[in-house]
Each structure stands twice: as C-alpha cells, then as structure tokens.
Design a protein around this nucleic acid. Sequence first.
DNA 1: CATGAATGAGCATTCATTCAT
DNA 2: AATGAATGAATGCTCATTCAT
Lengths: 202, 202, 202, 202
Amino acid sequence: MSQTPTTRPRVRATDSKHRLFTASMELIGTRGHQQVSVDEIAKAAGVSKGTVYYNFGSKNELIGELLNYGIAILFERLGPGATHTDPEAGLRQMVGEALEFIAEYPAFSQLWISEQWQSDSQWAGALAQMRNDVIGMVRAALSRLAEQEPAAAGKPVPDLDALATALFGATLILGRDRQVFHPERSIEECVGAAMAFTAPLR
Amino acid sequence: MSQTPTTRPRVRATDSKHRLFTASMELIGTRGHQQVSVDEIAKAAGVSKGTVYYNFGSKNELIGELLNYGIAILFERLGPGATHTDPEAGLRQMVGEALEFIAEYPAFSQLWISEQWQSDSQWAGALAQMRNDVIGMVRAALSRLAEQEPAAAGKPVPDLDALATALFGATLILGRDRQVFHPERSIEECVGAAMAFTAPLR
Amino acid sequence: MSQTPTTRPRVRATDSKHRLFTASMELIGTRGHQQVSVDEIAKAAGVSKGTVYYNFGSKNELIGELLNYGIAILFERLGPGATHTDPEAGLRQMVGEALEFIAEYPAFSQLWISEQWQSDSQWAGALAQMRNDVIGMVRAALSRLAEQEPAAAGKPVPDLDALATALFGATLILGRDRQVFHPERSIEECVGAAMAFTAPLR
Amino acid sequence: MSQTPTTRPRVRATDSKHRLFTASMELIGTRGHQQVSVDEIAKAAGVSKGTVYYNFGSKNELIGELLNYGIAILFERLGPGATHTDPEAGLRQMVGEALEFIAEYPAFSQLWISEQWQSDSQWAGALAQMRNDVIGMVRAALSRLAEQEPAAAGKPVPDLDALATALFGATLILGRDRQVFHPERSIEECVGAAMAFTAPLR
DNA sequence: CATGAATGAGCATTCATTCAT
DNA sequence: AATGAATGAATGCTCATTCAT
C-alpha cells in the first residue's frame, strides 16, 4: 500500500498531529499559551489553520492533549525510581528524572506551573488529576523512606502529604529556575537541594 | 464620605486608584490576568474605562503596580524574621509570614507563580528583581543558620543558593496548594514541611 | 424509469443520493439551509463528506436538486385538480393538495418561502420558474372559474394575476403557519379560508 | 454643551446607531441577513466594526432591534385603519398601509417572511409576538366586519383565525411579489385582490 | 464509487487603547 | 479628574471545497 516508488508523505495520518505537537510545545514554552495564536502554531508546524481544527477541535483541546502527552512521559520516567528497592536512592532518582524531564520539556513544565493553581483553568480537571497522581507517587516514596528508619527519637516528623507537596513544589521550581536563571547549575546540585527535604526522615 | 466641613473635598484623588487596585486583585486572582479585561476591572471598581487609563496608562502598568504593591508588603512582613536573633526561629517566622501573605494575597501570589519563570513575561525585569531579593533574603537566613552550627562531620551541605531556591519554591507552592486543594491544612503544618529543608543544616 | 427486465445489482448507485436527499430535507426543514453544514448532512446520511461532492458537486446544487425534486412532486399532485371538470371543486382540490404537500415537505416549503422573494437568491432562476408555473396554474383555474359564472353585475372582478398571487401566498402561509403555530387546525379549515378568495368570482 | 462655535458631530450619541440601522436595512433587504457580514454593515454605515459591537452587542441583536423598529412603524401605520368606523373601509385601509409599508421597508418585510416560520429562528420569540399581534389585529377587523353583516343564509363563514392568517399571508406575499416580480402592479390592484378574501363576510 | 485529511478564505467577536468633552 | 463612544488589529473558529488514495 505504500511501496509505490514515486509515492509521497504516506505517514500523513499522524504526521500533522505530531508536527503540531512539536510546534506547540516550542511556542507555548517560551511565550505562554495565551500569547500564542493558532495561526502561529499552524505556520510553525507547516500546516494550515484548518488542520489544527481538523485534528484537535479547538486550541484548548490541543493544549489539553499536550498536557496528557507530557504527563504520560513524566510518569514513564518516574516509574523506575518509584519501585527502587532502596527508598532513598529511589527518591533521589525520581527527583533527578523529574529535573531532567523539566529541562527537556520546558513548555510542558511552565504550562503546568502557570495553570496548576489557577482556580478556573480550562484544564482544571486534568491538572488536578496530574497533581494528585504525582504527589501521591512522591508521598508513597516518602512513606517507604519513613518506614525504613526507626522514627528518630525527638524529631517531629512532618505530615507526609505536606512534605510531598513541598518536595514536589521545590523540584518543579528548582527545575524551571535552573533553566531560566541558572543554566550553569547542575542537576546534581538541584537534586541535593531537593533531597534536603527528606532529612528529617532519615 | 465628606463629613468634614472645611477640609479636602478630595481624598478622592487616589480613591479611583485604590478601587481599581482592589478590583484588579480580586479578579486577577481567580481568573488570571489574561482572562480579565479592562472593561471588567473598570466595572468592578465602579469607574469608567477611561479612568483606568487616566490612572495607570495601560493594563500592563496596572498589573506592574500590583506586583510592586504586593512585593512591598511581602518584604515588610519578612523583615522581622530576617533580623531575628535566633536564625532558625527567624526562618520559621519568615516562612510563616510568607504563607500568611499568600493566603491574604492569592492574586498576587498566583500572578507571581504564573509569570516568574515565563521567559518573555511583560514584567520580566521586575520579576527577576523580586526573585533575587527574596531568594537573597532566604539565602542570608540559611547562611546564618549554617554558620551557627558547626558543619556536621560527614553530611554534605548542599549549595546555599539552590537550597534557598528550593525553600522559596516549596513555600510558594505549599501556600497556593493549600488554598486551592487543601484549605483544611494549617499554616503550621506547611511551615513544618517547609522547614524540613533546613534539617541538613542543623 | 428503469424497465430493464434483467436485474439491477445496483439500486446502489443512487442509494447515497437518496440518503442525502432525505437527510438534507430533514435538517434543512428545521434549521434553514444556511445553518446546516455539509458535514452534518453527510453524517446524518451516514456517508462521507466527499460523497456529497461526488454526487452533487456542491452544496448549492444539492439544494437546487432538492427544489426540483419538490416542485416535481407538487406539480404531480396539483395535476388532477387542475383538470377537474368543475372549476370550483378543482381549485378546492388543488388547495387541499397543496396544504397536504406543505405538511409532508416542510423543508421544501420553508426553503421556498424563505428564498422565493430574496432578490439575489442562489436559485433565483429556478425559483422564478417555479413561481411562474404555479401562479400560472392557479390563474388558469381562476380563469375557468370566472368564465363559468356570468360576471356578477356590480361586483368588480379583481385582476386575475394578482388574485392568483394572493391565493398562492395565502395557501403557502396558511400551510406553514398551521405546522408551526396551529398544528390543531385542520386542512379543511385552511382550505375554507383560502377559498374565501374566490368568493367574488362566484 | 454644544454651542461652541467650532464644534463637530455633536449628534454623536445615536448617530452611529442610526447609520447602522439604515445600512443594515439596505444590505439585509437585498441579500439576506446570513449573507451580509458585520464588516460590510460597518463599512456601509461609515463606522468601524467595533462600533457595531459597542452599540448592539452582536449581529443578532442588531437584527433583533431592526425587527422591533420595523414592527413599531408597521403598527403605527395600521392603527388608523383598525379604528375606522366603517369595518370594510378600515380593513381596506389597513391592507393598503401594509402594502405601502412593505414597499418602503423591503428589508424588514423579506426578513420577516424568511424567518417567521423557520422553527428555530434566532428571533423566534419576537417573531411569534409580532405574528400574534398582527394576526390579532386583522382578526379583530374581520370580526367587526362579520358582525355588521347578518351572516348570509347558506354561506358557511370560515374560521376567523384562519381567515386572518390567510389575509395576512396574502398581503405579505402580494407586497413582496409586487416588488420583486411585478413592480408595475399598483397597490390598488393588490388591495383589490387581498380584499377578495372578505367577500364571504359581506 | 467513496473516503477523509487538508485547505484557506471568511466571519463574528474581543479588547486594549485613544480622544474629544 | 473622569468619561464613554469609537476604533481596528488580532483571534478562535467554521465550512464549502479539493484531491490523493
């Protein structure tokens, strides 16, 4: 069905969709989704405006799929660390993967930061889900870490949920801040700073 | 509104400005600055659209002043903690004040989170300044805390700049997350989680 | 229309066309041709959008054929009454048939009413032809009716062309109005009202 | 406030609105409301597109106000005939006024015809109201006419509601048809044809 | 015969900004 | 100091139509 010598694009089907994904990520990452028009996205992807609507239905849906796409990748990367036998090493690995992910997908990360706590975001539902999943995963890792160590004598262990949120927030901000204000700062340094949070548990 | 017989018929002057400030904070807090029109702000403030431009010159300047206004209040509140004699108590106080501030000025906080790491924000300059000042202040506090304790033998102390950024990020996210997803979580709990960061220094 | 004795494995050929006809009639009847998209028609007919263009060339041609189809049926139904031996009974029969037709083909009727006097309609030519044919037929019936009766002494007989137009208009509007605003009104009642027009001729 | 010698446009206020009314009537009359863009209307009125929205809120509201405007004028004109002492002369006068109105406001009339029986028109409510008011007025006139004459012996008097609808429809169509297809036909001729309807009542 | 991905001109609407009063 | 009518560029979206398969 596609060996005809003189043929072309046969990849057609998902081709446009992928081009749009890539172009959107690029543009939205630097300027914010509100500042990027569908026209620009289409032009950057090398397709017509109508193709955006044919493939995604609306600008919001396009961004929604961008979010789904990003979170899927993030989860894939966090998986290994989450099941590591050594809780601390596992957590350290997760934070490192997260920081690398943020470096690789700045558009997704920035979009997430900007929209996650905007009470009336267009993607409130999906975002709340994302937040719960990630914080839950972090909390589980912290829980295993805490169980391992016999609770130190006098040290008051903070609430695990709040601690997971703090670690999540610190990692997110460390990742973005590194890219925007401190490109010279290594991921290891950031991991070190983020892991400081776990000190009371060790 | 004008009881004093012989005095200023205008306190009026800045009246419109204040009304606009209040209205903007309210609206932008829930919906994001891009989703709020000058028309809405004017209507909510009970003034005409022209008045917005008379007082602020442009929508961006209005928001810029909102940022200045917020950051000034935040600094005022962080001051006492920053000069506390006990470094740890001082830091704890600062985090607490920050969380209370976030609760009191959600619009400002959300705006800050959304724009701070958006590479081409309209207020990039002011935001970078804000970020430097706050992180610097946190770093100074961490520095005093570290100096006080004789560096524990084997524990590697993380980079203070990264640690300050982590603490800043964690506090910001904890504050917003509390408002949006966990209104029942107390400020003390959040302070506890944020302060976990400082464990390696103690 | 297709007496060929030995089989047709395809009635198939016109299958899509018929489905599209039916679907168009249904949709256009309630919403107006401008409010119905080719996508909707295709979906309702259970065929692809390309099939619409394969069969009709354009949306306007589809509607044009809808008009031709409708007018052909209408004429077929008006025939018997037009050749009735008793002019009055014939006219009464024609009006009755017309009202029944309007009830059966509301889409066609509404389209006709909406477009007939729109000066720059897409189907101006076909519509003018339709109008002439129908009004001519009505006029002929009125003429036979008038000839039969010896012009009443003092009664001024109105211009037959104008009278035919009035009867045409009254019937069209009575038919649509019945469907939209007075479903309980019988066709007989409407015929009675429309025939009132012929009183001066009797 | 406006005597300043060198002033200009002072009429400003309703000026734009009137210009838009006039331009809309003109354009919509010949091409139909769906075929006329807001751009065209604005250009024809000599104002910017934004002004249309400033004054009317939306294209649909503009057309809605056009309908209100037209119906108000029509009612004003029908008033005298409706209260005429001689029922027949009054009715004749009403029909004449209606035909003149149709000639003067073709856009309104065509819009009315096109939308009145479109089941899902944007202005369904207003149109139903218009229809009820006008048919009610006609019905009242027919009623007075019927009461005056002792019901002729054998003649079955048709339902007054249906008769009013028929007269309404006939007049509307006669008026439009005259403009589009028979400009040479006089209003008197049309009145004669429309009044033929009342014969059974006399 | 039929499909459906792709197109791009066209459209209604929004909104920050200006300016005469 | 304040107003609000007017502006026009920008934007998200629709839809009839084309065409390679």
